[in-house]
Design a protein around this nucleic acid. Structure first.
Lengths: 216, 216
DNA sequence: AGAATAGTGTCTCTCAGACATTATTTG
DNA sequence: CAAATAATGTCTGAGAGACACTATTCT
């Protein structure tokens, strides 16, 4: 197809200030957009997506997964544009956005305070959020939003923020420990009140999804 | 990006002869490939995917969903090719492949008897199959592979073929009926043995996924 | 009558969910 | 010692899974 623009965009989620937030870049006029860029001829789609936010973030692993490809004619005025969109989760220590870049300053936005967005980017964020909810239910995605070591209260808090509901402390701890996907460390986190034990995610305990089927 | 080819492919599943099968088109030399074609300038990606198999199939609704976008440089020799791949489920009455087409004859293949395939199409089919398994667990996808009206034995059989395991008849019936997603019709299917009641899928009974979380 | 398939009920055991108190640290 | 947060165990009810016989039709 001629006159085709192929780019990638990333929906980057992280937890800051007890809320789920998205990283956005300045867009057209006063609007914002999902960080993104054109794909280079010799570069994989995933590498292009990773490049779209590398340099804006501090160290720390990012979880990156393809979300969806948007390509309807007319979704971007002027030129037929196909956007392969990726979904990214980053832990808090990587949130420090670097001071400047050619693309201008990126900023974190709470999900309920999103600014005006270019094209179909609102719709894309809404879809990414739905996907995050699903992932929380059947995978260990929640750990990608946490530091390497965390307390059980922090872990529970993460789940509560994303799922949007309160969870029972004793049931939460029982089930997460029985699942065997985290292990205790000798360290503790100290602060106000009794110090809490630190845990870490066991990547080896491949959390095989033992989902009960909807209809067997 | 210049010199870029954008196309769509479809992985079409259906049940024939008590087995899950895929529809393939003749490819390069003696190999086969997933049906597909270039995207037209004014056409949506989904419409292009639908067009890739329209005409090859008889009437009957097809379930169509975007699967994944493959675009690594080098996956297709010669030109950078980005393929948006769709996942399709069709019921048995739509299987009749029409006698001819410009692209040559398509054929159904059992999953364990796949021929040599072009490029990364084997990998794509393997991924589509994994996705089908997931979908069977948390959604009502199984019904897309059945005719409008079906017996409980046929439904159970469908699940057994795709999941690859035997299911208990009484438990299966109890749970599928309690879920309220199918309803009886006055008709029966007659054959050898006692005639079986025909059921139909209730599209209105939005099968909300009450998946039990892996970790709450 | 025999072969073939449809249709039906009970028990057990696991696990999700509700629930309140004690323990350890800091200021 | 008061305030703050961490840590811990039991009971109940719902539902998944194992299991075997009767009913209806066709030849």
């Amino acid at each position: 197809m001629t006159d085709l623009s192929l780019n990638v965009h990333v929906v980057i989620f992280s937890l800051c200030d007890d809320a789920l937030q998205v990283l956005l870049a300045p867009g057209e006029k006063d609007a914002w957009q999902l960080p993104g860029q054109d794909v280079q001829p010799a570069e994989s789609l995933e590498a292009a997506a990773a490049r779209a936010f590398a340099g804006q973030l501090g160290p720390g692993e990012a979880y990156l997964e393809q979300l969806y490809t948007y390509g309807d004619p007319g979704r971007v005025p002027g030129q037929r544009t196909v956007s392969v969109v990726y979904f990214v989760l980053i832990p808090p220590e990587a949130q420090r956005s670097s001071p400047s870049s050619t693309a201008g300053k990126m900023r974190w936005f709470r999900l309920n305070e999103l600014p005006a967005l270019d094209h179909d980017h609102s719709e894309i964020i809404a879809y990414a959020l739905r996907r995050l909810h699903y992932k929380m239910e059947y995978s260990a995605a929640g750990f990608e939003l946490l530091p390497d070591e965390f307390t059980l209260s922090e872990l529970q808090h993460t789940y509560e923020i994303i799922l949007g509901e309160k969870l029972d402390k004793r049931n939460f701890r029982r089930r997460i420990l029985e699942a065997g996907i985290i292990e205790g460390t000798p360290r503790r986190r100290t602060g106000e009140g009794r110090p809490a034990r630190l845990y870490r995610y066991r990547a080896d305990a491949v959390a095989e999804v033992k989902t009960r089927r909807l209809f067997p």
